[in-house]
């Protein structure tokens, strides 16, 4: 399998007047295409910080992140935004859909930003919403959808840009167990059938049970990295 994410001695230190906090410390890892990986660990262990660094939302204090052969620490803010648009899909804990747009418009928004053709955008939007089981709610706004449905729209949006991988930060945290289970099965299916790479930051034992690789962090350091 091709490596799409490579981190080398990645460090992120937060400083305040009293002390330095090493949120991520010397993390070196490789993630290959098609992986279904969970980054786990107790609160404050550095899971979300690591995810933000990989997603280019935060800058590392030191170390290197190479995505698909591109060292992203060399990119300017503007280039990084464009890089995220083309290469990374995000699923947030709080769904973060655009409330004034319908499910269909939320999904097609990213493709519009990419400047894709209208016909291609429409076809892919329909295809993705069908894949996440929301073909009958395409014209509903987020407020009219349940939490589970909103998160499925968020998954479709993350997939819309045809990213190299998807980062999901506690995607089940705000969902009831049934919705969470349904969402997880859907993402697992996408991973198995379409070889889409998922990287989760999670506490959820259900995700850990389904994940094919579990990276455990404690105090910003990798304490275990297991393939199932």
């Amino acid at each position: 399998m091709t490596t799409i994410i490579e981190t080398k001695n990645l460090c992120k230190t937060f400083k305040d007047s009293a002390q330095e906090v090493h949120a991520v410390e010397n993390v070196s890892l490789n993630i290959a295409e098609g992986e279904f990986t969970a980054i786990v660990g107790p609160s404050g262990s550095g899971k979300t910080t690591l995810l933000n660094l990989i997603g280019g939302l935060d800058n590392a204090t030191s170390g290197k992140i190479v995505i698909d052969g591109q060292d992203i620490s060399m990119l300017s803010e503007k280039q990084m935004t464009e890089f995220r648009l083309r290469n990374i899909g995000f699923i947030f804990q709080a769904y973060n859909l655009i409330p004034v747009l319908t499910a269909k418009e939320n999904v097609s928004f990213v493709m519009d930003l990419q400047g894709r053709k209208k016909s291609e955008t429409n076809a892919r939007t329909r295809e993705l919403l069908e894949a996440v089981g929301l073909s009958d709610r395409m014209d509903s706004r987020p407020a009219k959808l349940s939490g589970g449905q909103q998160q499925r729209v968020a998954v479709a949006r993350a997939l819309a840009s045809k990213p190299k991988f998807i980062l999901a930060d506690e995607p089940n945290a705000n969902l009831d167990s049934k919705s969470a289970q349904h969402l997880l099965e859907m993402m697992e299916k996408l991973n198995e059938q379409e070889k889409i790479t998922f990287i989760f930051s999670t506490h959820d034992p259900r995700i850990m049970a389904k994940a094919k690789r579990i990276i455990t962090l404690e105090d910003g350091k990798i304490v275990s990295d297991e393939y199932k």
Partner: peptide
């Protein structure tokens, strides 16, 4: 604020 942050995260440029 949160929504504008999300737009930036998913790749909407500052110019847009």
């Amino acid at each position: 604020t949160r929504e504008l942050g999300m737009l930036g995260a998913i790749g909407m440029s500052k110019r847009k």
